[in-house]
Design a protein around this nucleic acid. Structure first.
Lengths: 115, 115
DNA sequence: CTAATATATGAACAGTGATTCATATGAATG
DNA sequence: CATTCATATGAATCACTGTTCATATATTAG
C-alpha cells in the first residue's frame, strides 16, 4: 500500500493561495524570465528611454523591442509618455527594482562556496 | 535624419551588467514563471514534502512533478533528503520567500485603483 | 497634402519547454 | 533474490512564445 501524507496535505492545502492567484504570480515572473525584457527593465532603471534608443542599446529590431514593450505595458511594469513623434518608456513603480534585486542576491549567494 | 540619443545610451551602457549576468537573471525568473513550479515552491514554504505528496496536492503525475523538481534542484532553489524509499524536498534558503513576496506585492498594488 | 520619422501591429516561422508514456533505478520487505 | 513502493529519466508530442517581415498608424515638417 502507498504511504500516507494526509496530515501534511491538509495543512498545506489550507495555506495555499487560490489557483488564480498562483497563476497570476507565475505570469508576472514569466515576464521577467526573458533576456530581452530583463535588459529593457534594467535599462529603464537608469533612465526613461525611447523605443529606438532601446533597440540601439540591445542591438535589436525596433519591432522586436516594440512587441516586448507591449508585454511590459500590459503587465503594468512600464508606462509611456509621448513627445512629438517619440514615445518615452519608463518604469511604472519601484517594484521592478526590488524584485530584480532579490533575484540578484540569490544568484550571488548561489555562486558562493558553502562554508 | 533619425534623432539622437548617444548621451543616454552611453550612460545606460555604463551601468548595464554583463550579458551573462542578465541572462542568468532571466533564467532564474524563468523558473518562477511556471504555474506548476510556483505551486511546488509555495507548498514547500509550508513544509518539506515527498514527491508523491506534491503530486497529490497538485493533482498531477508523479513524473511531471519529478521533472519540475529536477529543474528547481538544478537552480539550487530546493534540496532533497532521503528517508528509506521516500525523498523529501525542501527549500534551500529563504530567498524564495522574499522573491515570491515581492511578486505578490506588485500583483496586489496592480489591482488597486490609482488614487 | 506629401514625405519622412517613430512606433505599433499582424501573420508566419522557429525554437523552447511542459507534460505524458514507458521504462529504469533504488531501497526495503518477506 | 523477487516483489513492491518511491522516484528518476529519456523520448515524443503539443502548445506556447520571441523574432522577423511587411505593413499600418501617428506626428511633424515642408
Amino acid at each position: 500500500m502507498p504511504h500516507n501524507h494526509e496530515a501534511i496535505l491538509q495543512k498545506v492545502r489550507q495555506e495555499l493561495p487560490t489557483d488564480e492567484l498562483l497563476c497570476d504570480l507565475a505570469d508576472l515572473f514569466k515576464i521577467f524570465g526573458d533576456t530581452t525584457r530583463i535588459k529593457i527593465l534594467y535599462a529603464l532603471l537608469e533612465s526613461e528611454m525611447c523605443v529606438c534608443a532601446i533597440a540601439d542599446l540591445l542591438g535589436m529590431t525596433q519591432s522586436a523591442i516594440s512587441h516586448q514593450l507591449r508585454i511590459l505595458k500590459d503587465a503594468d511594469l512600464v508606462g509611456k509618455r509621448r513627445e512629438g513623434k517619440t514615445i518615452y518608456y519608463h518604469l511604472s513603480d519601484e517594484h521592478v527594482r526590488t524584485i530584480v534585486a532579490q533575484g540578484f542576491e540569490h544568484l550571488i549567494e548561489e555562486q558562493m562556496p558553502t562554508p
